[in-house]
Protein backbone atom coordinates (compact mmCIF):
# COMPACT_ATOMS: atom_id res chain seq x y z
CA UNK A 1 0.00 0.00 0.00
CA UNK A 2 2.77 2.35 1.04
CA UNK A 3 4.86 1.44 -2.09
CA UNK A 4 1.87 2.24 -4.35
CA UNK A 5 1.45 5.61 -2.72
CA UNK A 6 5.16 6.37 -3.14
CA UNK A 7 5.00 5.45 -6.86
CA UNK A 8 1.91 7.63 -7.34
CA UNK A 9 3.65 10.49 -5.56
CA UNK A 10 6.70 10.00 -7.81
CA UNK A 11 4.46 10.15 -10.92
CA UNK A 12 2.77 13.26 -9.61
CA UNK A 13 6.17 14.77 -8.99
CA UNK A 14 7.28 13.99 -12.53
CA UNK A 15 4.08 15.48 -13.97
CA UNK A 16 4.56 18.59 -11.87
CA UNK A 17 8.16 18.89 -13.07
CA UNK A 18 6.98 18.47 -16.68
CA UNK A 19 4.31 21.09 -16.19
CA UNK A 20 6.68 23.50 -14.49
CA UNK A 21 9.23 23.16 -17.30
CA UNK A 22 6.54 23.69 -19.94
CA UNK A 23 5.23 26.74 -18.05
CA UNK A 24 8.75 28.19 -17.82
CA UNK A 25 9.32 27.57 -21.55
CA UNK A 26 5.94 29.13 -22.48
CA UNK A 27 6.66 32.10 -20.20
CA UNK A 28 10.06 32.54 -21.88
CA UNK A 29 8.49 32.36 -25.36
CA UNK A 30 5.87 34.92 -24.35
CA UNK A 31 8.47 37.18 -22.78
CA UNK A 32 10.77 37.13 -25.81
CA UNK A 33 7.80 37.43 -28.19
CA UNK A 34 6.55 40.52 -26.39
CA UNK A 35 10.09 41.89 -26.13
CA UNK A 36 10.63 41.49 -29.88
CA UNK A 37 7.25 43.09 -30.71
CA UNK A 38 8.05 46.04 -28.42
CA UNK A 39 11.51 46.39 -29.97
CA UNK A 40 10.03 46.36 -33.50
CA UNK A 41 7.53 49.02 -32.45
CA UNK A 42 10.23 51.17 -30.85
CA UNK A 43 12.50 50.83 -33.88
CA UNK A 44 9.64 51.80 -36.21
CA UNK A 45 8.84 54.79 -34.04
CA UNK A 46 12.49 55.90 -33.92
CA UNK A 47 12.88 55.49 -37.70
CA UNK A 48 9.71 57.48 -38.32
CA UNK A 49 10.83 60.25 -35.96
CA UNK A 50 14.27 60.35 -37.61
CA UNK A 51 12.67 60.44 -41.07
CA UNK A 52 10.40 63.33 -40.04
CA UNK A 53 13.35 65.23 -38.55
CA UNK A 54 15.46 64.53 -41.65
CA UNK A 55 12.68 65.70 -43.99
CA UNK A 56 12.25 68.91 -42.00
CA UNK A 57 15.98 69.66 -41.98
CA UNK A 58 16.16 68.90 -45.73
CA UNK A 59 13.22 71.22 -46.43
CA UNK A 60 14.79 73.99 -44.30
CA UNK A 61 18.06 73.68 -46.24
CA UNK A 62 16.22 73.60 -49.56
CA UNK A 63 14.24 76.70 -48.67
CA UNK A 64 17.45 78.60 -47.87
CA UNK A 65 19.17 77.49 -51.07
CA UNK A 66 16.22 78.06 -53.40
CA UNK A 67 14.48 81.20 -52.11
CA UNK A 68 15.03 82.05 -48.46
CA UNK A 69 18.58 83.38 -48.41
CA UNK A 70 19.53 83.91 -52.05
CA UNK A 71 20.52 86.85 -54.18
CA UNK A 72 17.66 88.60 -55.93
CA UNK A 73 17.49 91.36 -58.52
CA UNK A 74 14.70 93.52 -59.84
CA UNK A 75 14.38 93.09 -63.60
CA UNK A 76 11.66 94.65 -65.71
CA UNK A 77 9.49 95.05 -62.64
CA UNK A 78 9.90 91.45 -61.64
CA UNK A 79 12.17 89.77 -59.13
CA UNK A 80 14.86 87.47 -60.51
CA UNK A 81 15.94 84.86 -57.98
CA UNK A 82 19.46 83.46 -58.21
CA UNK A 83 19.09 80.22 -56.34
CA UNK A 84 22.23 78.62 -54.87
CA UNK A 85 23.83 82.10 -54.68
CA UNK A 86 23.31 82.73 -51.01
CA UNK A 87 23.74 85.79 -48.82
CA UNK A 88 25.43 84.86 -45.54
CA UNK A 89 23.55 87.37 -43.36
CA UNK A 90 20.22 86.23 -44.81
CA UNK A 91 20.96 82.61 -43.87
CA UNK A 92 21.43 83.44 -40.19
CA UNK A 93 18.50 85.88 -40.26
CA UNK A 94 16.16 83.04 -41.25
CA UNK A 95 17.15 80.83 -38.31
CA UNK A 96 14.47 81.97 -35.83
CA UNK A 97 11.74 82.10 -38.48
CA UNK A 98 12.45 78.54 -39.62
CA UNK A 99 12.78 77.27 -36.06
CA UNK A 100 9.28 78.54 -35.26
CA UNK A 101 7.77 77.24 -38.48
CA UNK A 102 9.34 73.80 -38.35
CA UNK A 103 9.31 73.47 -34.55
CA UNK A 104 12.97 72.50 -34.49
CA UNK A 105 16.21 73.70 -32.98
CA UNK A 106 18.25 74.65 -36.02
CA UNK A 107 21.93 75.45 -36.42
CA UNK A 108 23.28 76.87 -39.69
CA UNK A 109 26.92 76.95 -40.67
CA UNK A 110 28.65 78.03 -43.85
CA UNK A 111 32.06 76.43 -44.30
CA UNK A 112 34.54 75.74 -47.10
CA UNK A 113 33.89 72.00 -47.17
CA UNK A 114 32.00 69.32 -45.24
CA UNK A 115 35.09 68.44 -43.20
CA UNK A 116 35.58 72.09 -42.21
CA UNK A 117 32.18 72.31 -40.53
CA UNK A 118 32.20 71.75 -36.78
CA UNK A 119 30.58 68.64 -35.30
CA UNK A 120 27.20 69.13 -33.70
CA UNK A 121 26.36 66.53 -31.07
CA UNK A 122 22.87 65.04 -31.13
CA UNK A 123 21.96 66.87 -34.31
CA UNK A 124 20.94 65.54 -37.68
CA UNK A 125 22.78 67.50 -40.36
CA UNK A 126 22.45 67.91 -44.11
CA UNK A 127 24.96 69.63 -46.37
CA UNK A 128 24.17 71.68 -49.46
CA UNK A 129 26.60 73.03 -52.00
CA UNK A 130 26.15 76.77 -52.49
CA UNK A 131 27.89 79.80 -53.91
CA UNK A 132 28.95 82.68 -51.70
CA UNK A 133 29.96 85.30 -54.23
CA UNK A 134 31.86 83.15 -56.71
CA UNK A 135 33.24 80.76 -54.12
CA UNK A 136 31.86 77.27 -53.70
CA UNK A 137 30.88 76.76 -50.07
CA UNK A 138 29.13 74.19 -47.96
CA UNK A 139 25.93 75.13 -46.17
CA UNK A 140 25.33 72.84 -43.24
CA UNK A 141 21.86 72.76 -41.71
CA UNK A 142 21.51 70.81 -38.50
CA UNK A 143 18.37 70.17 -36.51
CA UNK A 144 17.19 68.40 -33.37
Amino acid sequence: METKNTTQQKHKGQIMFDLATAVVAIALILYFGLYIITEINNTNERTLEEQILFNRVVSAADYLVKTGAVETQQRFGKTAIYHHKIIESEVYAKETELETKLKLDLIFEICDSVSDCSEKDGCLCVNRIVLLGDEVKNLQVCGK
Partner: peptide, 9 residues
Protein backbone atom coordinates in the same frame (compact mmCIF):
# COMPACT_ATOMS: atom_id res chain seq x y z
CA UNK B 1 19.00 68.01 -54.38
CA UNK B 2 22.72 67.40 -53.87
CA UNK B 3 23.18 66.27 -57.48
CA UNK B 4 21.26 69.33 -58.60
CA UNK B 5 23.52 71.50 -56.38
CA UNK B 6 26.65 70.14 -58.08
CA UNK B 7 25.31 70.94 -61.56
CA UNK B 8 23.79 74.25 -60.52
CA UNK B 9 26.97 75.47 -58.85
Amino acid sequence: QLLNDILEV
